[in-house]
Write a protein that binds this DNA or RNA. Structure first.
Lengths: 217, 217, 217, 217
DNA sequence: AATGAATGAGCTTTCATTCAT
DNA sequence: CATGAATGAAAGCTCATTCAT
């Protein structure tokens, strides 16, 4: 009985995913990103994951479970917490100026998107088509993150650091400027040479002056 | 009792699309928007269009032709010209201030998106998955519209009306702020009550001050 | 009212086929020969005939009627009569030798096949698949021609001009030798250069000596 | 009661075809022979093979693959080798007389056709319609078998055993006489009572005398 | 657990046939 | 008569899912 084969890492809560399960999930995201959920066949996923066709269904009863099962955890476990944590860190810091605040936020976002490109792509692409995913956004972003952000912005407005506009509008503008860059940067033209530093600086500059209180003049 | 049943309008050159063809195209866009191209069955399209299954293929030899045939024309015939024309009108006007310029542009865009919601939604959703559509964007937007816009921005910069940043960055920020609003306004929460006027004003305000030359201070 | 347009040749029994009907029939045989009956679409026939899809069905209610309607008449009106007539001519002639008889027969056959290549090809190809055509062969060939031929051969045997073998066997051998040549000549390698005279001579020679009475020795 | 259910014979290299694959192939040939390739539906094949509709495509990706996959192997693995082997055997034997040679050849052919009736029928019927099959004939028969046969006949002519005619003509006549019999015997009237011995004897007799050198007289 | 052969519903597409014009 | 748009049944083929091994 000299230690059996090292199989079966079991489900210790540190990593509840089998190696095989992980590979299936990765393969799924890969193909979903390339061809879209509906155009992807489970056999293609199995092939890329290097497992048998039937094995896929041991972990996820249906193909759709694969999508939700791949997006949801990566969502709940990485996306939301990551966003919240990073954002929290940023917000807690005592930002002397609006610019330093914006700069910190955008920097965090950029890293986050970079690390989760594929899942984000799939999530963006499939969300309009699957109510399950829509619910995930709702819960994670709208219900949790949004109030935090809006509160924070109101605070900044109270301190006279941000222009007086509906907090949601302010948040949307920041998010939009960043998202516009991130989309082009990672999804539309990922192969171009990008100077993230300069672009971030530009965004900070423009947003900083644009969102500054009007009586700054 | 003049004129019998108004059937068979034949091909008056005003619109080269049969009534039935129009209905098929509309139905296709409708379902594509709801379920995505790949998850949509041609029989569903036929049903919604009120025609027989086989009739769909009279007009469009393959299902994919339906997608391209619906997006492409509406793209080439509305998107590009419309954008170009409107944009041209705006640009040619002698805008005294940066704000009046931005305001005019955003106003045009908003109307455009509103009128072409469904096609835009389908185009956005399917573009990453279909090289044909990617090519359409390339030709219409990147090759035609982009140079015009960049030139224009450079002109504004030369006149000291716009902050000195890469013209593409400036353009992207304007587009991003607008797109962010348009997305939420029309696609994410279309049913909310929106005050387009106020939102446009806010965008103009923020972009106006953000994109103003720095030495304004 | 000086003679209307020359339309409507009507069905005077000399040529009961409209010009259009003729073209449809020709087109049908053309495509049937190329692709086979089942793989041919009626619209292809219509296109080649230069008529509308619906027009085909004015003459022949179903696609199959086209096949039978093309093969049958050309069969009954050309094949059988032609064969019978020519054969009759040959048989009635007072052939001094077996060779002159065989030579005359083969010569007639060759011309016949040459003139009716396409119909023969279609008939050969489709007969095994369509009972209707099988019936045609039965009636035309087996019931009518066969007895004539067998009688004739028996006559020749009685006169000591042909080896004593079952008349059917004798007939089959003549037919086989000829058919083998005709098949290769017209259907397998029609583009090769053929010396019909030499080949016919060879067939006459071999059949002549092979079918000669044994006591010739 | 050793040995459980005899299922899953696995791939013993004797026959690389699964039992199910075999059944599909057999069913296909059966229906192709009856209705022709084009008129046969894959579901009909599946039904006769006793498998699900989709199963057919496990083995053969397209319907056409079924045709080629059924004809080609049986062609390459039986037809050519069989013909060549048998023919070789026959040719190597030191045939004292032309008749003994012909008799041996025809005997071999007859057995061969009898054993492969169905495939031969399908091959004959479908060859004119499928270039792929034409290529098979070309390679197997024209390129391989033909030269062998022609050589052999020339040899016989040199030895003064066969009439001096183009070797191809000689070969064709032998083949034609045989093919004519085989066609009627197996395909046109398979249900009649046939005396193969007598018919073969007749063919040997007639061909023997017909193909004998002329100066025999 | 893992496999992969087998299933059969469902998909896109074709086509013989009809019929209003 | 002739047309060709329209039909809808049926075809070839795919694929999510199951299950005996």
């Amino acid at each position: 009985m000299v230690g059996k084969k090292d199989k079966k890492p079991k489900k210790d809560k540190t990593g509840p995913l089998t190696d095989k399960q992980r590979r299936v999930l990765d393969a799924a995201m890969e193909v979903f990103a390339e061809q879209g959920f509906s155009a992807t066949s489970t056999s293609e996923i199995a092939k890329r994951a290097g497992v048998a066709a039937g094995t896929v269904f041991r972990f996820y009863k249906t193909k759709k479970d694969l999508l939700v099962g791949a997006v949801a955890p990566l969502f709940k476990r990485f996306v939301a917490p990551s966003l919240v944590r990073e954002f929290g860190k940023v917000l807690q810091a005592d930002h002397a100026t609006l610019e330093s605040f914006i700069g910190a936020v955008l920097q965090d976002w950029l890293e986050f998107v970079q690390k989760n490109r594929r899942v984000i792509r799939v999530a963006l692409q499939e969300t309009p088509l699957h109510p399950e995913l829509r619910a995930l956004w709702q819960e994670s972003i709208m219900d949790q993150l949004r109030p935090m952000v809006l509160d924070q912005i109101e605070g900044l407005q109270d301190r006279g650091l941000v222009v007086v506009l509906p907090p949601e509008t302010v948040a949307r503008m920041m998010a939009s400027v960043f998202a516009g860059y991130a989309m082009q940067r990672f999804f539309v033209e990922p192969d171009r040479e990008w100077d993230d530093g300069a672009e971030l600086a530009a965004m900070v500059d423009v947003l900083g002056r644009g969102l500054a209180p009007r009586e700054a003049a």
